[in-house]
């Protein structure tokens, strides 16, 4: 047990030191972007991995969150905190529309509906020019600030790490409880779950709601971090990327999103050898494809195993990870 604590301490230290060691502010910015994506991927792990409800339209919630927060702040003059709140609430509300088809559809058909939802939201963002400024995007979104200091990338990094920690705690508690069990029962056999007294509609709403709320929060973070948003960031390709992150990390592992997002984000960088400029994206997507095809459980279980090997097994309970 003591050894494990040391292990967690080392990981925590590495995280705390990251922005200090990596002095390149742009790298920290990219890391922040990947942490924002990790929030979405965590939501997807809950919804897709645990509750079995696929979504290929999460860029829509990401976009709704980003636009809601920036517009409530810019147009209504509300404080940023309220912008975040509005982003989350509106996304949860919209998720209700998306979960209604899931009462009837599953698998491929549900994924097609979520794609349709994503595209429709995207088209609305592009065309509702009076509100969203269309394809040009929204400029001058204020950054978060505390006691008069505007957040820089390092501040955002720590804020995101803390947020992810809290969200991790949240989904860990839920998925390890009777509610998570209902999710998994519904995922594995919907009919048997219902005949065991599980109200699957409620749990679908809940799963969609949680992950939409996560995506909305991520969108708000993104808007205030980058200061500028445009419809380009919320295309269908982004939705696939989010799912790809969750799968690369491990769709059925609580840490899947947190592990997957930085890997998918930084993988292309790792292939940026001199002379490889044309190939690095292809190489990175190839590696991800291979992970998805040949390692269906993703990388998080592997990392967990490695951690356990070095720092010893957890003495009680099962399948846990850092608190």
């Amino acid at each position: 047990m003591q050894r494990r604590k040391i292990g967690f301490l080392i990981i925590a230290l590495l995280i705390v030191l990251y922005p200090l060691v990596v002095s390149d502010s742009y790298k920290v910015y990219i890391m922040n972007r990947s942490l924002i994506h990790a929030i979405i991927a965590m939501g997807l792990v809950t919804q897709v991995g645990f509750a079995g409800q696929i979504s290929l339209g999460h860029a829509a919630f990401y976009g709704i969150g980003a636009y809601t927060s920036s517009l409530t702040v810019l147009k209504l003059g509300f404080p940023i905190g309220l912008g975040f709140l509005a982003a989350i609430l509106l996304c949860v509300l919209c998720s209700v529309f998306l979960s209604v088809p899931s009462f009837k559809l599953s698998g491929f058909f549900l994924s097609l509906t979520t794609i349709a939802f994503g595209h429709i939201v995207w088209v609305i963002i592009v065309n509702w020019q009076s509100l969203t400024n269309g394809a040009l995007g929204v400029f001058g979104i204020p950054s978060l600030s505390l006691f008069g200091t505007r957040f820089n990338n390092t501040h955002y990094f720590y804020l995101l790490v803390v947020t992810i920690g809290l969200l991790y705690f949240f989904i860990r508690r839920i998925t390890n409880s009777f509610i998570g069990r209902a999710f998994m029962a519904m995922r594995d056999d919907e009919l048997a779950a219902e005949c065991s007294g599980i109200n699957t509609r409620y749990f679908k709403l809940l799963a969609f709601g949680i992950s939409a709320g996560f995506a909305g929060l991520a969108g708000a973070f993104y808007a205030h971090l980058s200061g500028f948003i445009s419809p380009e960031s919320f295309r269908f390709a982004e939705s696939t990327k989010f799912v790809g992150m969750a799968v690369t990390g491990g769709l059925r592992h609580l840490l899947g999103g947190i592990v997957g997002a930085p890997i998918v984000t930084f993988l292309p960088e790792m292939f940026r050898f001199p002379g490889w400029e044309t190939y690095y994206m292809m190489a990175a997507t190839f590696v991800i494809l291979m992970i998805v095809v040949f390692m269906p459980d993703g990388l998080a279980p592997l990392l967990e195993k490695g951690f356990n090997k070095i720092f010893g097994e957890r003495s009680t309970g099962k399948g846990g990870s850092s608190e």
Binding site: G52, T240, T285, I288, V292, V293
Partner: peptide, 17 residues
Amino acid sequence: RLEFIVATMMLNIFLLN
């Protein structure tokens, strides 16, 4: 099905690249 959906989606992205 889920695995197949994700794998073919990633295949699509790879082919684009």
